[in-house]
């Protein structure tokens, strides 16, 4: 994203990449977990205990953390048609408004999910097999949401202060592809 040349934007990108790598590693871990459980079930009639619950909860944590990246980079799935059709000044207003709405929604989720973490903690929700408590996973998701709220507000500030644009969703990382030419 060529629009992050401000020092704040630069520092933020590095922090977020670090978080994303942790979340990405979690995704890798879940992949291995599900394959291992399938092998265990098919080959030895013993699936890994709690592979079902633990993999879905871990993936939830990874997704929660990934929200921080979207809030900052602006790579949410959105309709850019009108934004590309209007002038820069108008687009800046549009971006700011969109990110105010995003921040408000993220804030609401932070508030309500904090309650969910608490009720899971006192209610004793646990996994089916090993009875691992749910709340540490929910807490990790909540921390990811808080990070997302923070990064969304930083992006909002960058829009307001420096007029930076939002990234577009396409799911392909240019830099990564550069050194992959055969």
């Amino acid at each position: 994203m060529q629009n992050d040349r401000t020092p704040a934007g630069h520092a933020m990108r590095r922090v977020i990449l670090f978080l994303e790598r942790i979340a990405g590693a979690l995704l890798g871990l879940v992949t291995i977990l599900i394959v291992a459980s399938a092998i265990g079930r098919y080959g030895f009639a013993r699936p890994l205990p709690d592979a079902f619950d633990v993999s879905r909860l871990l993936l939830g944590v990874a997704i929660g953390w990934g929200l921080a990246s979207l809030g900052f980079h602006g790579t949410h799935i959105k309709v850019d048609l009108l934004a590309h059709g209007v002038g820069l000044r108008m687009r800046r207003w549009m971006n700011a408004f969109a990110w105010v709405v995003l921040a408000a929604f993220t804030g609401l989720m932070c508030w309500k999910i904090w309650g969910r973490v608490n009720s899971a903690m006192s209610g004793g929700d646990a996994t089916m097999d090993l009875r691992l408590p749910h709340w540490p996973f929910f807490l990790a998701i909540w921390i990811g949401l808080m990070a997302a709220l923070f990064t969304t507000l930083v992006r909002l500030w960058l829009i307001a202060r420096h007029g930076t644009d939002l990234g577009e969703f396409d799911g392909i990382d240019e830099e990564l592809l550069e050194d992959q030419k055969l």
């Binding site: 079930r41 009639a45 013993r46 699936p47 205990p49 079902f52 619950d53 089916m128 097999d129």
Partner: peptide, 13 residues
Amino acid sequence: ARFVSLLGGGPVQ
């Protein structure tokens, strides 16, 4: 699910 595990089987969710 716990019962199946106790009996040496694999619970499939």
